[in-house]
Design a protein around this nucleic acid. Structure first.
Lengths: 211, 211
DNA sequence: GTCTATAGAACGATAGAC
DNA sequence: GTCTATCGTTCTATAGAC
């Protein structure tokens, strides 16, 4: 693996710009300028702009995946049936922790993730692979055991809610649209608030059940 | 107000295409083609592509705003301190109900909203006005009364969670990434699930409080 | 109010010298 | 591995005829 090469600087620049302006809003010229590289460097190192995007996403997502898997392993080694709160923490925690240094409290990376999830362009969702499916299925199974009585569909709805809250929320916090008089959200507080919020949400009785 | 004019057909076409491909992914040509209008029509009727977007957003958002306001009025007329569930319903319900006919169960409009909220482009967030601020503040105040003991910051975090869950969730449901073996989510079920999920989340004890 | 025609700029990709 | 130069495309916006 080469030293702080052009390749890495392109990845850094692209990650920043894709997060800030989206895929289509970022030109190859803007990336190479920021990276201090030549316009042709993207083609040489990655083949195309879309393949550069895929490399950026993989670099961001892989440590999150690994931490989610490791967290679940640790939990299951302790007890076969972890609590909902522990599962939420294992799933959502890495979305807060596994952010590169230099990121403004992870907000920029969160924004990249939201940009990816929300972008209707096909390039944006072409990167998911078997690793993502495996993690999803493992957590779904664990949540299913912790929350019997929930239909698979409603369970899936709730698990998706975890991603929605963790990702979207911090992006909006990063933007300017907070009511006046509120102090900006610290990263640590948001992490705890999210887990409180989500653990309660996941633990709600099934819709339609008698109270 | 003129009949089903070119202007309206441009709005319809633009709404569809912005939702499907994003703002930057949609060309003025694609819009005018779909509307059966001339390329110059966007400039004539709206001034620019960005102003057309603003008009599209306003048309989608205004009935939602109105329904949220009316719902809160109705609630407050009945009791000065509505329950958390009632407030969630009044806030989130219109996000499910106030969708134009012809929309695939509201999924397309949800996608437009996510495209707006998630898009880093400035044009996408330049449309908010005093109406949005007023509604937000009214609901914040009502939730604050229903949830004493919650700091304003954590309350704001939770209220933002409502929008995150309702909008993002249905977009992901609309996309292809559900685990195999799960039936697609019906709109009515999602509405109920979301309210269950969010009412429990909002009602969680403040983070850090003793159980 | 609708059209043609085009200006003017930006884009992604790549050929080929070094 | 890095660079210059450029090709071919696509874009928004607008001038001006009808």
């Amino acid at each position: 693996m080469p030293p702080p090469s052009t390749r890495v600087q392109l990845l850094d620049a692209a990650e920043h710009l894709f997060a800030e302006r989206g895929f289509r809003g970022t030109s190859v010229r803007a990336i190479t300028d920021r990276a201090g590289a030549n316009l042709a460097a993207v083609g040489y190192h990655f083949g195309s702009k879309a393949e550069l995007l895929a490399a950026v996403i993989r670099r961001v997502v892989e440590p999150i995946n690994a931490a989610q898997n490791a967290g679940l392993d640790r939990l299951l080694a302790r007890t076969p049936d972890p609590s909902v709160t522990d599962l939420v923490e294992a799933f959502a925690g890495p979305l807060f922790d596994e952010m590169p240094v230099g990121d403004e409290g992870g907000a920029r990376t969160s924004r990249l993730i939201v940009t990816i999830l929300g972008d209707p362009a096909e390039e944006m969702r072409a990167w998911t692979g078997p690793a993502e499916d495996t993690i999803r299925d493992r957590f779904l199974a664990a949540f299913g055991r912790a929350l019997p009585g929930l239909s698979p569909e409603e369970l899936w709805f709730r698990v998706r809610g975890i991603l929605a809250v963790t990702a979207v929320d911090r992006v909006q916090a990063y933007q300017q649209d907070a009511p006046s008089g509120l102090s900006p959200v610290a990263g640590d507080a948001a992490r705890q608030w999210a887990i409180t919020f989500l653990a309660a949400a996941l633990s709600a009785p099934p819709t339609g059940s008698r109270s």
